[in-house]
Amino acid sequence: MIYTLLVLSSPGAGHGARTAADFALTAIGRGHTINRVFFLDEGVDAGCAAVVYPQDESTPLDNWAALAEEHAVELVLCISSALKRGLLDSSEAQRYDKPAATVHPAFSIGGLGQLIEAAAGADRLMTFGG
């Protein structure tokens, strides 16, 4: 089955984002396809490259990076949600004259059309958090 995931909550708020990453890994392990994960509103916090967690806690970013790197899952942050939270890739940082890119390279920034397109091509759209 083909799934699109929509993540609405920040990794720092509740378990929605973590559950989404766990769901994606388990679904892939059972032979399903995740055609895109779209992060909207507070969900975009998942893509922040600059987070530092205490040594005895797991970093949610690692799960997403593994999904992107080992399973080629496309991770897209909503551009309007991302920009107003200071989440910029290098081209957006340059465009708005900001000192640094803050988005982890496993993620890209895109418009809502990317969610709509993915959902149209999926059997299921699953929403996490929010």
Binding site: D41, E42, S80, S81, L112, G113, L115, I116
Partner: peptide, 20 residues
């Protein structure tokens, strides 16, 4: 309350623009 409501409305408009 936060930006979730606005994000949802933006999604509605985008869905309509994509003829969903």
């Amino acid at each position: 309350h936060g930006a979730a409501a606005r994000a949802a409305v933006d999604l509605a408009l985008a869905m309509a623009a994509f003829e969903q």
